[in-house]
Design a protein around this nucleic acid. Structure first.
Lengths: 249, 249
DNA sequence: AAGGATTTGTTCGTATGTATC
DNA sequence: GGATACATACGAACAAATCCT
């Protein structure tokens, strides 16, 4: 379903283009049943480049944890299927990924009380400058970084929200302390871009990696906005699932 | 909401990274109300690079049609807001983008009758090797390439489907000739990756560009699968919208 | 058990592209 | 525009680990 091709003088180094193609190819079943890649010489011939260039690409992917090289034996795919993250009216981090990973956890990286900027104020239906809580979080599945998120909450309605989140490790549980028993995802807007330096560090990606960006907008049972967030998923580790698979749209 | 950052020794030339950031920044409102970019000197300072490097980036974007430079006046954004493509149970190309562009059209690039591969057969609930129709299409909004898609249909249920599509320019209309009055999007799986060479050519992208990949799965009113497709959207031109904005989830 | 073939790992040198000043 | 520094890519040769006969 994907053709291989390399563009010279494109501003993107050949080794990076090759690394990207190999990374893609893995999802499409590159490598035989044992997970073994073609030899470096074969790959060099196939891409029309020197063996060194292929080696640089492979080293980047080894660094990333996608491949594993063994002298004398070959280079092998480290099997790590992409997590499927459900998006729908009941979107929640923990509930969606259960069964796909043994160890799921959310971490609070940072938090601050700020004055709402125009887009944040509009999303939360507050006035510009109203106090809001900004939460910087990240999530891991079996030790692999999956996503990072920046979320905004009405600081007057949810004072000390971050403490409840830290104690329970869950947004859903933290809401309970403010009598929000249930809540819904009103809308999600999905785009994609290159990872910035903060993404690279937090999600442990290599330069040039892609992130899926989901702008989410949650409301409580009465339809009042309670959360506005931007979540960035590592595009190599996650796909977003809308509908199907027996969950409520 | 997005930090600007440039990575040296990343395998991506600085001018390309800067071009990517400017392209993204345009969607986020970079440039003042007249669409004028900061001066080359200011941009160079902001990105921490030499002015020549910024010039190379700008020249690439001018070539791409995103910017326009005028000697003595400045560099200006050619306004082209990102289209918002709704994804839900009633996902249709034409209906979703109405009002966002004046001229919407779908083109048939290629078609062929083939034997179903394993994943296609599974999605359409056919046996492996059953005859299927493969359609290669693309779509444009006001002359800009928006997406390309590869779709599979049960060839026995929809013989000559491609002719009806060519005549009407619409999948929805083509279904009518086979007594499928209505149909639904059962599920959509979204991922992102670097554009391959076919993407670059068909969508008129530059190397290193990102595509949003949506694996979609349509069923008729009785719940029988009727279409399986992979659509690739230019991530710079389109965002995907799930829920909200007054359309049925 | 021995040795040749295969495959990855390392080290030279050279040319070109990218970015700075 | 020209000089300089560094990253990228190529080519050739050899070392080290593994596999197969």
């Amino acid at each position: 379903m994907t053709e291989t091709s390399i563009e010279r003088r494109s501003g993107v180094a050949l080794w990076r283009q090759i690394a990207d193609q190999i990374r893609q190819g893995i999802g499409a079943g590159l490598g035989d049943e044992t997970g073994r890649l073609p030899t470096e010489v074969a790959l060099a011939e196939r891409f029309g480049v020197n063996r060194h260039t292929v080696r640089t690409a492979i080293q980047a992917l080894v660094q990333e944890g996608v491949l594993r090289s063994e002298q004398g034996r070959g280079t092998f795919v480290v099997r790590q299927p992409r997590l499927s993250y459900p998006i729908g009216s009941r979107t929640r981090f923990s509930a969606g990924l259960e069964g796909q990973a043994r160890d799921l956890r959310g971490k609070l990286l940072d938090h601050a009380y700020e004055d709402a900027s125009a887009p944040v104020a509009e999303a939360l239906e507050l006035v510009v400058g109203a106090p809001v809580l900004r939460l910087e979080t990240m999530s891991e599945a079996d030790g692999r970084p999956i996503s990072r998120a920046r979320s905004y909450f009405d600081a007057q309605r949810f004072p000390g929200f971050e403490r409840h989140f830290v104690r329970t490790g869950s947004i859903t549980m933290a809401y309970r302390h403010f009598n929000v028993g249930d809540y819904f995802r009103r809308s999600t807007t999905i785009s994609a871009r290159h990872a910035d330096s903060a993404d690279l560090e937090i999600l442990k990606l290599s330069p040039g990696a892609i992130v899926l960006v989901a702008l989410g907008f949650n409301v409580d049972q009465s339809g009042r906005p309670i959360q506005f967030s931007e979540t960035r998923f590592s595009a190599d580790r996650v796909e977003l699932q809308v509908g199907g698979a027996g969950f409520t749209v």
